[in-house]
């Protein structure tokens, strides 16, 4: 098992080529989210936190379909994406607990994960913010003469904000190598999609911007990867952007303070029957990669690894006071080293 054996995000990302690692990573995401919930109850997490348990197949399906030097923007619901892209459990948990071991050194918190070495720009806490930024990353890739792509991940509720429409139009008209990924988990905060959005499928909006709009079973990591591969190939070829809609579900409420009482009875149970980890594990068994009954053992191993990472996090100090002023501008004295994308 490769989980957490490597502390290098890029190595963790490369490891995702392996089928068993793909399953392991989904379990890792689930375990980390569960641990965060517990850390919250234990008083280690401030502010709010937005879990993505139930959406693991989307994260892993995307991460295995793009390269570490492709660019990703996503949102406050980004723990799973960060882990899938390669950020270590300790770096994610550490950030959420405000420790120096965190991927933003404890300055960002749950909503602001970042790891340039695997293309992850700081996750944004403002709805829609990531889409235009992904367009710009795609422009830079093209201007600098390489075939890198940008992936913008956002929710169904975010398809009602101006930045969504402006970005799709902008990317389409300039044929930018962007893949717009909408995680349609049926809710924006406490509001079900049909109360905020006149169409059931966000993908239909692609038609207005003359780009492919694809609907994907977001609980199946292979289906996610397949759809992503096509959209990414199209972008790399220079044929322009796509909108890929992942039908998925968040098992928890919107944020830590939300018991999700607005959900119709039975809805969660129906989704739990199509759990992304179970779906993938069953396939692993069929493919003879996982022994029958091997899932529980794997889950226990991963949970133990996450527990170790948590212990490491709780040993880590918080950032020093000087960090407040150290990274505001180039002359703040923090010894900033600018990340140079695509320098090799």
């Amino acid at each position: 098992m490769t989980i957490s054996n490597s502390n290098a995000p890029v190595a963790r990302r490369e490891a995702l080529k392996d089928r068993l690692e793909q399953l392991t990573r989904m379990i890792e995401i689930r375990s980390v989210e569960e641990r965060i919930q517990k850390l919250f109850a234990e008083g280690h997490v401030r502010g709010s936190t937005h879990l993505a348990n139930g959406q693991e197949a989307v994260s892993v399906g995307i991460a295995r379909s793009i390269d570490p030097d492709d660019i990703v923007t996503c949102t406050y619901r980004g723990h799973g994406h960060a882990l899938a892209l390669g950020v270590t459990p300790a770096a994610v948990l550490g950030e959420i607990c405000g420790r120096v071991i965190g991927c933003a050194g404890g300055l960002g918190g749950s909503m602001h994960l970042v790891e340039p070495s695997v293309g992850l720009l700081p996750t944004a806490a403002i709805i829609g913010a990531g889409l235009p930024i992904a367009c710009g990353a795609a422009m830079a890739a093209r201007a600098r003469g390489n075939d890198r792509v940008a992936v913008a991940i956002f929710g169904d509720g975010s398809a009602n904000i101006g930045a969504f429409h402006e970005s799709l139009n902008f990317a389409a008209i300039r044929k930018l190598p962007v893949v717009f990924v909408c995680e349609n988990n049926l809710y924006g905060e406490y509001t079900r999609i049909q109360l905020s959005t006149p169409v059931e499928d966000i993908a239909v909006r692609a038609a207005s911007y003359n780009m492919p709009g694809v609907i994907v079973d977001g609980q199946d990591a292979d289906k996610v990867a397949e759809a992503m591969a096509e959209a990414v190939a199209r972008a790399r070829r220079g044929d322009g952007p796509s909108l890929v809609e992942m039908k998925t579900y968040r098992y928890s409420g919107h944020s830590r303070s939300d018991p999700a009482t607005y959900r119709p009875a039975g809805e969660l149970d129906a989704w739990l029957k199509r759990d992304p980890i179970d779906i993938f594990a069953n396939r692993m068994v069929e493919e003879n990669i996982l022994a029958a009954g091997g899932l529980d053992k794997l889950k226990a191993e991963v949970r133990e690894a996450v527990e170790l990472a948590t212990a490491e996090v709780l040993q880590s100090p918080g950032p020093e006071l000087g960090e407040i002023m150290a990274h505001v501008g180039a002359y703040s004295g923090g010894g900033d080293q600018r990340w140079n994308f695509w320098s090799k």
Binding site: R46, G47, G98, G106, L107, G109, P319, L321, M325, V328
Partner: peptide, 15 residues
């Protein structure tokens, strides 16, 4: 101070 609001508890308390 001329800086974004830090997340870390001790830092925000000082901020």
């Amino acid at each position: 101070p001329e800086a974004p609001v830090p997340y870390s508890g001790p830092l925000e308390a000082r901020f």
